[in-house]
Design a protein around this nucleic acid. Structure first.
Lengths: 296, 296
DNA sequence: CGGTAAGTTGAATCTAGTCAAGAAACGTGG
DNA sequence: CCACGTTTCTTGACTAGATTCAACTTACCG
């Protein structure tokens, strides 16, 4: 057992407080391995007895940082609710947003290799994350080797996501990037059971621009242009996707979206159609105020 | 034992021929786990008996594809010699280069999650790769749990690399991107024992441009500009870095290079200084023809 | 030696950035 | 509830930087 953890011990994982002990704010509900696999949309035959292993939760208030770039790595985090931004703080002050992790997304994986997180994770919302200490995971894998591939898959997924991002930045113009961003968001929210066609952005134009390698004015202009073209309806943070195919056309006139901008290859959730999904309300769901405004 | 592999079996790893059997071209030399960790620059306490496990090699000729996007995933690959490009073939024909894996770099990790490689790997050179079937790795981890973190770290490293790429594409202009590209190459070659200041590019302007999100003419102009500014000396594929600090200055006038464009956080190799390293010749090393040209 | 692929350079065009002003939403305190 | 200041967003005019198109040079390979 100790042999199984020797490597992690060498990285000082062993000396850290783990599990519930490391939770800054204790929540009553802890999550089982089964819950975790569901959250990650990775179907997994988890032995029943593993259910006793529990992962702690942590609540992060809007604007609060979950981890800072440079902090010592100890845990991975899976978003359970809310929305984050992960940023590189290019220490001449300016920051580059690397992603907007949402429910089911992984954070902190960039810290595994060198032992320090390489990006800062800031909550854009009152959020909740599952704390997954790497040491706990290692112990778990030791007891149940079939779990090994879980982290492999999650890391691989993250890799594909960032590669997609690099593709977007490398090949698309401003409007294409914004269109891809909106479609991506739409797909992810749809997979979570929210409306694919109507949602509120949790981030500012500045943050979107930083993420897409654009200035905030350019993002604003691109949104206005897509609005004018009839693809979407924008009003501040409120987005209505009127014509998703037209949006895809903006990305590639030959309608060839690569491997997929969408996050997961057709997960099982949200098969119930938009009508039901639209009833699922959250901070992402549009407020009624703008809806009547749009109708006018 | 079979239980340990059940998940992989489900993904058809179990039914694949593994180890030497899957090598298209048998090489006499197979690599041990120890060799592999050294190649990856990850120091690891590997139990001696693990030395018997051997990974097969495969030779890939210039222009040949190691894997194609969409192919069924079965193995990871670690470059042992030569140089590759990994490309997204945006199926309207145009392709985007995602990276130039070299000795010690991992390829194929983007296939773990969904079971298919998402990018094509083409050799730019006569190259050699170590074949690491994921099933073999799983078996190995079952026998020696401390190996588990090996793949975690490699995947994490890859993630950081691509995030750095996204940063480059998102924040730098043409000259900055080219400068970052050259510095990155310089650092990687240096870590392998080659000259940091003088090398030959293995890729065309077109491929560099695709990688950096630029057109080939822009790459050419940027190189000429850096040449004119006295940072480097360019002649076709031959690059001499005259003033690395000036190059860093191009990236950020305030000399603030983020976390590091460099690949690995100061690996142990190549501490011998440039003089000794310059003697290490390879396809990357500059030919003498241009050297005298440069002196003129 | 000639043909082809790769690289350089110039001029015109277009896209995104910059600077700047104004409008709309938000929060706070009266 | 309203007035206020602050933040966020939108829009316009101008500029800087990258792309495009094109001509030309240089290397490479039979």
């Amino acid at each position: 057992m100790t042999a199984a953890l020797s490597y992690y011990d060498a990285l000082d994982f062993g000396s850290m407080d783990q599990g519930t002990a490391s939770t800054q704010e204790h929540e009553g509900a802890n999550l089982s391995v089964r819950d975790l696999t569901r959250l990650l949309h990775i179907d997994y035959p988890v032995e029943a007895w593993l259910a006793r292993t529990a992962f702690a939760l942590r609540r992060v208030r809007e604007g609060e940082a979950l981890v800072h770039a440079g902090d010592k790595f100890h845990s991975l985090y899976v978003v359970r609710s809310g929305c984050f931004k992960t940023v590189y703080t290019d220490f001449s002050g300016s920051e580059q947003v690397l992603g907007f992790p949402m429910c089911g997304d992984l954070m902190g994986a960039d810290g595994i290799d060198c032992g320090h997180y390489s990006s800062t994770a800031v909550s854009l919302d009152t959020s909740e994350v599952v704390i997954v200490p790497l040491a706990s995971l290692a112990r778990l894998v030791y007891e149940c080797p079939s779990l090994e591939a879980l982290l492999y898959r999650v890391l691989s997924r993250e890799l594909v996501r960032v590669q997609n991002m690099a593709w977007t930045l490398g090949t698309l113009g401003a409007e294409g990037r914004v269109a891809a961003f909106l479609l991506n968001l739409s797909a992810r929210l749809g997979a979570l059971g929210y409306s694919r066609s109507s949602f509120n952005l949790r981030m500012t134009r500045q943050e979107i621009g930083s993420y897409l390698g654009l200035k905030l004015e350019t993002v604003s202009r691109a949104l206005s242009a897509l609005n004018g073209a009839g693809c979407i309806q924008v009003h501040q943070r409120s987005i209505d996707i009127v014509d998703a195919d037209a949006l895809r056309g903006v990305i590639d006139p030959a309608a060839a979206v690569p491997a997929s901008i969408a996050p997961h290859p057709a997960p099982t959730a949200a098969r119930s159609g938009d009508r039901a999904a639209r009833n699922a309300r959250s901070r992402f769901a549009s407020g009624s105020a703008w809806r009547q405004f749009a109708a006018a």
